[in-house]
Design a protein around this nucleic acid. Structure first.
Length: 593
RNA sequence: GCGCCCGUAGCUCAAUUGGAUAGAGUCGCGGACUUCGAAUCCGAAGGUUGCAGGUUCGAGUCCUGCCGGGCGCGCCA
């Protein structure tokens, strides 16, 4: 189904073009859903801009447009209001017809997929695998996952979305780790086979700490570590197995976190720094060939217009250090070449914290100048703020360490379990555990995604697990209540849908709910375009609240005939929309909680 | 010092990117369970959008200058 906004946009724009005549290019109709119900359901804001352009009275112009406008099939007669708005109020009969269509669409809820979806790379998560995943990886991982899910749905073609996990599996710290293993004759691959999972995990933590200690305190070890880095770069067979054992062990740990978080990332999405290692020399030579490379203090640099140091001098993007080593800028350049050249990406999205903003600005400027990404390739950085503790400082443990994602998730589940025990002690234990997992993980993700990306947010267990307010548990509860109606009424959904159902929207709560349900597609489209997940949580919360109002005022099972049928279908579509929307956020729904 | 981001109700956040009377949640206050799950709902209260100018039909949003905070600014990622 074509979105309501698009239908109105089309019709109003057509009339505007006629009214404007050939003299002027008519501006767009700019249809928005109205903020205030007093102004109807949708409004056209573009008339005033046109009036200005062709020097006419905006209200009179709006009147002319309304007179020529043919929207009688879907709206009550449109009204001109204020300085020149046109307000539209949808007819209940037309709403019912559209909603029926949405309900009968088993897969897409009546939402069209976009035309010509671009092949899109979503680069997210990207943990440094020398260490366990911690809270610093949380936002990129769940925001990136959501963006990938939303785009997959909006594009209507999962093949068009390519997840890339640009893990840090290369670099100087690996020299240190490998050197430690060699020196102590430890093969992680073997010890993790023999030991328990906890052992291999502890090994990695220990390994990092111990080798760091040696590196800092033992000059000879530090020297050997640096040699080890060189050997790694040369793919020396005496060190590679050790490196591989670290990578494998570490990625396995990451995978457990992803699985537990419900994040759609697998080993197939991993293209770590090591993947690009071979391609770095050609990055330099191609930059050189493009006449972009300059030496400065022994380092190979690209100087781009508009970037300055604190002294006001040109700020270089260093692509090769004076000792010959490459940097993350080099790897990112190679990654863009790979993504545009091999993956055929038309759109590349980077989900990282906002501190890397400057880096991406320079990176994008560089590939534009080098011609590695033409105008047709969209490069987008999605920056986000930090996770803070109650004190407003970066979220850390009491001892000042980064909070491990594993312990974070364990605690989420534990706290959710306590709530379930309190609210619903009679459920079977395994069900309680499933609920606790869905609620706990959902709460963490929802709390993150419901914030505007650019702002920092304060991590607060009590708020994210609260049953009241804009939280995952509230949303999941709303869903469970819908399901409860079907259970209680022993309504078979398949039968319900198979009936020749005629929707009849009468009560204001029914009409309001129907209108909101039909706006789901607009929201998905906006999120896909602007990459702002909190717009989706806002919508879902609005929907859940509107449903609650409907639920208290409109008995479903006690209603009869068409009314009962209508209300059941409204419940069905509400449940489905919440489930689908939460699904795009990577959050599970549960039938009872 | 320069650059980027931010400043909105006591608190946590929105505001469809320039649209109408700035909205939610939460806290506190007042109501609603014999009724499909009260983990809910309804109501009232709460504001000089950091300050001062400017742009225009119209500004929380854009421009300028201050104040306050966060982040970044050559060989880490």
């Amino acid at each position: 189904m074509k979105p309501i906004i698009d239908i109105l946009e089309q019709r109003v724009s057509d009339v505007m073009a006629v009214v404007a005549g050939e003299s002027a290019d008519a501006p767009a109709a700019i249809i928005k859903s109205s903020a205030n119900p007093q102004f109807g359901d949708y409004q056209a804001n573009g008339v005033m801009a046109l009036a200005k352009k062709i020097k006419q009275n905006p209200r009179e112009l709006a009147q002319q447009i309304v007179a020529k406008l043919d929207v009688g099939d879907m709206c009550e007669p449109p009204e001109v209001a204020g300085p020149g708005f046109i307000n539209f109020r949808l007819k209940p009969g037309w709403l019912a017809q559209r909603l029926t269509e949405a309900i009968c669409d088993p897969r897409r809820l009546g939402i069209d997929s976009c035309e010509n979806p671009p092949t899109t790379v979503v680069d997210f998560s990207g943990p440094n695998i020398a260490k366990q995943m911690h809270v610093g990886h949380l936002r990129s991982t769940i925001i990136g996952d959501t963006i990938a899910r939303v785009l997959e749905f909006w594009y209507g073609n999962p093949d068009k979305v390519i997840r890339q996990n640009h893990v840090g599996d290369w670099g100087t710290q690996f020299g240190m780790l490998v050197q430690y293993l060699i020196q102590h004759r430890i093969n992680l691959a073997i010890s993790s086979m023999q030991g328990s999972e906890a052992d291999s995990l502890a090994n990695l933590e220990d390994l990092y700490r111990k080798s760091k200690e040696s590196f800092d305190n033992d000059p000879q070890f530090a020297a050997s570590s640096r040699d080890c880095v060189v050997k790694l770069h040369n793919k020396d067979s005496s060190v590679m197995p050790f490196w591989q054992s670290i990578v494998k062990t570490s990625l396995d740990e990451c995978q457990k976190i992803y699985d537990s978080l419900g994040v759609n990332l697998t080993e197939h999405d991993v293209r770590g720094e090591s993947f690009y290692n071979d391609k770095l020399p050609s990055v330099i030579s191609e930059l050189s060939a493009a006449k972009l490379l300059q030496e400065s203090d022994g380092a190979q640099c690209v100087f781009l217009d508009g970037f300055k140091t604190k002294e006001g001098e040109p700020l270089p993007m260093i692509v090769q250090k004076s000792d010959g080593a490459y940097l993350y800028a080099t790897t990112d350049l190679a990654a863009i070449q790979y993504r545009v050249g091999q993956l055929r990406a038309d759109r590349i999205i980077y989900v990282t914290d906002s501190r890397q903003k400057l880096h991406f600005e320079m990176l994008f400027a560089c590939v534009r100048q080098a011609g590695w990404a033409g105008e047709s390739v969209r490069l987008e950085h999605v920056p986000f703020g930090s996770v803070l503790g109650d004190d407003g400082k970066p979220f850390k443990t009491r001892s000042g360490e980064n909070v491990k994602l594993k312990s974070l998730l364990d605690e989420a589940e534990l706290r959710a379990r306590q709530v379930v025990e309190e609210k619903n002690p009679d459920l079977p234990p395994d069900l309680k555990q499933r609920i606790a997992h869905a609620v706990g993980v959902g709460a963490v993700k929802y709390a993150d995604l419901s914030n505007n990306l650019v702002t920092d947010y304060i991590f607060n267990w009590d708020k994210m697990l609260a049953m009241e307010g804009n939280t995952a548990p509230y949303m999941q509860y709303a869903y469970a209540r819908v399901q409860s109606i079907f259970r209680k009424g022993q309504v078979d959904v398949a039968d319900l849908l198979a009936q020749n159902h005629s929707l009849e929207l009468a009560a204001p709560e029914e009409i309001g709910l129907a209108k909101l349900l039909l706006r789901y597609g607009e929201v998905v489209e906006t999120v896909a375009r602007d990459l702002r997940p909190h717009l989706l949580t806002t919508y879902l919360f609005d929907l859940a609240q509107t449903f609650s109002g409907f639920y208290t005022n409109c008995p479903v099972l006690k209603a009869e005939g068409t009314s009962r049928n209508t209300r059941l279908l409204l419940c069905y579509q509400t449940g489905r929309t919440i489930q689908h929307g939460l699904g795009l956020l990577g959050i599970e729904t549960i039938e009872q909680m």
